[in-house]
Design a protein around this nucleic acid. Sequence first.
DNA 1: ATATCTGTAACGACTATAGTTACAGTTAGC
DNA 2: GCTAACTGTAACTATAGTCGTTACAGATAT
Lengths: 143, 143
Amino acid sequence: MAANSQFSMAVHVLSMLARSKDENFKSDYLAKSVNTNAVVVRRLLGQLNHARLVMSQTGANGGTRLARCPKEINLWEVYKAVNCGEVFALHAKEPNKDCPVGKNIEAVLCCLQKDIDKGIQEKLSKYSLQSVFEMVAQGTASA
Amino acid sequence: MAANSQFSMAVHVLSMLARSKDENFKSDYLAKSVNTNAVVVRRLLGQLNHARLVMSQTGANGGTRLARCPKEINLWEVYKAVNCGEVFALHAKEPNKDCPVGKNIEAVLCCLQKDIDKGIQEKLSKYSLQSVFEMVAQGTASA
DNA sequence: ATATCTGTAACGACTATAGTTACAGTTAGC
DNA sequence: GCTAACTGTAACTATAGTCGTTACAGATAT
């Protein structure tokens, strides 16, 4: 699986922002914590901005801050903001419609996708950014 | 997300096998339904074989059949068999340990991974191969 | 023996992502 | 107004993963 590390980075960056709601964090500063390039962080922040999770300000003394309280941001929103895809992909090529299985399998798989997504939503929407920040701050990884 | 289509193909192929427990299905025949190459199918069957979901027989008149009843195979097993990875990846590069967030974020993310996996398990383990086969056979995609 | 299968290695084509450089546009502070 | 400090984004390269394909060794029913 060529999994997405966007979500990990998003949680990391948002946890950084959660440290102070009124400070403008520079992409370069955030990048150093994530250990990557500032442009990579800005690309990610663009997605989070689009989802109204953060606000950015250009120009001198600019930067990015949370658009809302950490308590009012949950990880399901974060997941949706950075995951354009699904947990598993449907067939790349269309199955053989002359086969009774090939004919209907896609609809069934589509259903399964939605059900899995619901499962992830149920789990992730229970975590607020605040709670994640507290786990990180305390160094305890016990959910 | 460069999502995995292995799971889709696995469900498709297993649904084919579920049609008859005592027949040896050739990889070439399965490939035509999936609309792909026989080698691709054999690679997948190798994983399913390793997970003890199917049994293969080499030689003339060989092929693959289910190792168990469709009722006793659930989709969580299938998912585990073909998904080596997780829903989201941890950081590719190690975060900056001098940063209080970077120091602990990985442990927290690891926890989240496990919780998401549990969510997927709860959903998928409810589906038996039998029930999937019936959905496909009836052409109804209503879970 | 022979024809028919699987298992698997090897290779090329394709795609997605990460990292990097470069630069236009915005803004605070002087 | 200038300048320095930021963001946003395009463009390019490097890298890695997956898919499809060819090729062939090994197994087995007839």
